[in-house]
Amino acid sequence: MYAVYLYAIQLVKHGLPADLAGIDGAALRLVQCDELAAVVSEIQQAPDVRELPAILAHELAVETLMASRCVLPVRFGTVLSDERAVRSLLAHHELAFRTDLTRLDGCVELGLRALWRSDGAAPAPAEPDVPSPLSAGRRYLEGRRQVLRQEQHLLARATAISEQLHAALDPLVRAAVVRRCRDAQTAVTASYLVERGDIGSFRSALGDLSAVFSEVQLLCTGPWPPYSFVSTRSDGQ
């Protein structure tokens, strides 16, 4: 009994590259509904997400497609019972898919992480000593207060960094999803929607920023399929 595994949504007119394989080496094919097509392969059972090869096979298939057309990447592990279910899905989300394919055409996603350098996540300046001795309860609360204070401190500095990133990168990107962190490793994680032609300028802007930032190092990944910028979520929001 075979089920249908979904990789991506694209326009029918782009077709498929020859001999493109997916999970377990299964051949990819298109299931179409009007002008929209889902890229699928047959699968015997839902892939085991503990196995990196299945994840990479999914990603590589989508990235291969991404090189020659706009695709909406589908989240890993999406399995439908049969082709009819796939066509019904395409019909149900037709407007959202078509809008996204137009909006994301010619764009890729770039990932960015600003990681605190070893001395970057230095603790907040010490407060004047609280009178001792403290009771156990008071000591606990005092400890909690210090942790929260440190988090606030990190968040404030992450905010400053995200503002600098925004000022420098905003003109170069179509859209951005930026998350400030409050942990000792990561200051900011971000995803940027960038036109293919702007990838070079984006990277060079990051290079300039790197020279400015002494407390974080910037790591840029991608180009990825536009995972963070598709609008179709579980309940059709």
């Binding site: 089920a3 979904l6 949504i9 839902a46 997400v49 994840i55 999914h58 990603e59 909406l72 990447p73 589908v74 989240r75 890993f76 592990g77 999406t78 399995v79 439908l80 019972s81 279910a85 899905l89 996603e109 990932g111 995803s191 990825w224 399929p225 995972y227 963070s228 598709v230 179709t232 979520r233 579980s234 309940d235």
Partner: peptide, 15 residues
């Protein structure tokens, strides 16, 4: 990205 983002579909799926 691949596990948390992208087109997410629920319903009568085996996901």
């Amino acid at each position: 990205r691949i596990l948390q983002k992208g087109v997410v579909i629920q319903g009568d799926l085996t996901l």
